[in-house]
Amino acid sequence: MNFLITGMRSNNLNFHSATRMSIRAMSNYTRLATGTPFTESHRIYIEKDGQIISPFHDIPLFTNTEKSVLNMVVEIPRWTNAKIEVATGEEFNPLKQDVKKGKVRFVRNCFPYKGYLWNYGALPQTWEDPTQSNPDTNARGDNDPIDVCEIGEKLGVAGEVKEVKVLGVMALLDEGETDWKVIAIDTKDPLANKVHDIKDVETHFPGLLDATYRWFKIYKVPDGKPENEFAFDGQCKDKAYANTIIEETHEAWQKLIKGDTPAKADTHDLAVANVTIKGSPYTTSSKSIKPSQEVKKSNNPGEADNKWYYVG
């Protein structure tokens, strides 16, 4: 298999043997990258037990029977700008950089923020069904796994799998779709045993929830788009409500992966190949995946636009 193990130190990619050990130490999952970072060719696959797996379908949502600890796939490390996401329409759903109008996408630095404020990612085995409308938001799902803002102190790595606990959820209304933003914390964080619900975030991370609301409201404005809207006046709902939403999106995913909901329809076009889901008509093997490129360093990391945008 023509992959190179990759890692990240600060905002720069590094390629050396020590990285392989550090990534393996993070979890039972290994990141395998191909193509050139910050280009359309770059992909990050996830491997477990010598086989490529889908971070959308094959990584369990819950890590314990109490359902109090969840897996999170990091897409975008805190303070970085490249819009990396799980490729829901590609076989085995590697991570890739979003493309708009033929160009890879970076978010702008809206004063006083640099890139994303948290380790941003997705909950595996969840799906926001675009055919279903939430009664509280009066908007349909956005056709993606549910998003997570992980607020712990440690910088994540794209493709890393973190174990997190849920604290609350914010409801962004993105172009008429419900785009849930779960607030969570790494279970290994020094403050994890002190924050148990959304009210604890304001106590131990004062100002972070206000900054989160502000960031999501304005981050598209420098690209000529209007400010985003929210349900619940932008306020975060508590842990119990968040868990209800997560369970609903998990149930929607279960219908999808079992074939009860079609994978391809007018509202969505999803890749559902997996290697672990018993009873799924889409279970298969990924051993034949052989990308044509090894990962290469990029001479232009795509971060040329480092200025601050002042949004009133």
Rank of each mutant, 00 (worst) to 15 (best):
L4W: 03
G7I: 12
M8H: 08
S10G: 03
N14Q: 11
N14C: 14
S17E: 14
S17W: 14
A18V: 14
T19I: 15
N28F: 07
P37S: 09
F38W: 06
K48R: 13
F62M: 03
F62T: 05
T63C: 05
K67M: 14
S68Q: 09
V69T: 13
N71L: 06
V74M: 07
R78Q: 05
N81F: 05
A82I: 13
K83I: 10
K96S: 13
D98T: 11
K100C: 08
V104C: 11
R105A: 08
R105Q: 10
F106C: 11
P112K: 10
K114D: 12
K114Y: 15
L123H: 00
L123D: 01
P135C: 07
R140M: 14
R140I: 15
N143G: 12
D147Q: 00
V148S: 00
C149E: 10
G152C: 01
L155Y: 07
E163H: 10
V169A: 03
M170P: 00
L173W: 04
E175D: 08
G176A: 02
E177C: 14
P190D: 09
L191N: 01
A192T: 11
K194D: 07
K194I: 06
H196F: 14
D197L: 09
F205C: 05
G207Y: 06
D210M: 12
T212E: 05
W215C: 06
I218M: 08
K220M: 01
D223I: 11
G224W: 07
A231N: 03
A231R: 02
Q235H: 15
K239W: 02
A240L: 08
T244Q: 08
I245A: 08
E247C: 08
Q254R: 15
K255Q: 15
L256F: 12
K258M: 09
G259K: 09
G259T: 11
T261Y: 13
P262H: 10
A265K: 03
D266C: 11
D269I: 12
L270M: 14
I277F: 07
T283L: 12
T284G: 02
K287M: 14
V295W: 06
K297S: 10
N299Q: 11
P301T: 06
G302H: 08
E303G: 05
D305N: 09
W308E: 07
Y309H: 12
V311W: 02
